[in-house]
């Protein structure tokens, strides 16, 4: 793989803050299907950015482009001023992109602690095992999983699984954490706990980009919202701004979900 190149070294603060992640015209075609078209946005340091949109809007494809599961057909991706477009998944992780999956994917034959240790050990190059174990412990305590450290992942509840998923991604020491519908399947009370968890992650200095369906969660959590429809960015702004945008409303009304579902 080619090493990432730095672009002019410019990490200039914009009115909203310091840029951490910038997508420039990202597109992805599958055969004739344009799943993501010309998507551009800027994600700022310490910001919680939500990507919303009706089903099939291309949100998950976008997340896969960001984390490196897919290579974009066109466009560039910059992370902390570095062009990471051509980096494979593991190198993007090293560069500072963490990801938690919608469907939790714990390593089934490892304990909870070992799961997190993997992230702590390989998330950045040159980590030592004892140190990684310690950091994994610290993270389990922070995410309320310390009591379950020696359990197998399948012994956890769904909420605990989600905590594990987040803890493991945070263990890779990301500058940006990508979350794919982490609230999916949680009861309302649990979702509130998950919201607190995500806030905690942000407060520890990690910028968060998340995909979400549940609008109250977006309202509570997001500093800024990117709305997608049919693979394109429809609107960007605060929650109030985008929900007031008639184009967004009509895009949602055109679906069964409705905006305030």
């Amino acid at each position: 793989m080619t090493a990432a190149t730095t672009t002019g070294g410019a990490l200039s603060p914009t009115p909203q803050g310091v840029e951490v992640l910038r997508a420039e015209g990202l597109s992805k075609r599958f055969g004739g299907l344009k799943a993501v078209q010309d998507v551009s946005f800027t994600h700022h340091q310490g910001e919680i950015l939500a990507v919303i949109g009706p089903n099939g809007a291309g949100k998950t494809t976008l997340l896969n482009l960001l984390s490196g599961v897919y290579r974009p057909s066109a466009g560039r991706l910059h992370l902390g001023g570095r062009d990471v477009t051509d980096l494979p998944m593991e190198a993007r992780c090293h560069a500072g992109l963490g990801r938690a999956f919608q469907i939790v994917r714990p390593f089934p034959e490892m304990t909870v602690h070992e799961n997190v240790t993997v992230g702590a050990l390989f998330g950045k190059p040159g980590q030592r095992l004892p140190k990684a174990r310690e950091r994994a412990w610290a993270l389990l305590e922070r995410t309320g999983l310390a009591a379950h450290a020696d359990k197998a992942a399948h012994e956890l509840t769904l909420l605990q699984d989600k905590r594990l998923e987040v803890a493991r991604a945070v263990a890779t020491q990301p500058s940006v954490l990508l979350l794919d519908e982490v609230m999916a399947g949680l009861r309302p009370g649990e979702a509130q706990e998950a919201v607190a968890l995500v806030r905690g992650v942000r407060d520890s200095g990690v910028s968060v980009l998340f995909i979400e369906h549940i609008m109250p969660v977006v309202r509570d959590l997001a500093d800024r919202v990117v709305v997608m429809d049919q693979g394109q960015v429809l609107a960007q702004g605060t929650y109030r701004e985008v929900t007031a945008d008639p184009r967004v409303v009509s895009a949602y009304l055109g679906t069964e979900e409705g905006l305030h579902a």
């Binding site: 984390s67 599961v69 494979p88 998944m89 593991e90 992780c93 090293h94 990801r99 999956f101 994917r105 390593f107 089934p108 034959e109 490892m110 070992e114 240790t117 993997v118 992230g119 050990l121 390989f122 998330g123 950045k124 980590q127 030592r128 095992l129 990684a132 493991r168 991604a169 263990a171 890779t172």
Partner: peptide, 25 residues
């Protein structure tokens, strides 16, 4: 007993997940 154990086991139990967590497969 070393980091190899974690790398091998992670790749075996979920290759894509391992890559996302930075394991160079």
């Amino acid at each position: 007993l070393t980091r190899l154990h974690f790398a091998f086991a992670a790749i075996r139990q979920g290759e894509e997940t391992a890559r996302v967590l930075g394991v160079s497969i």
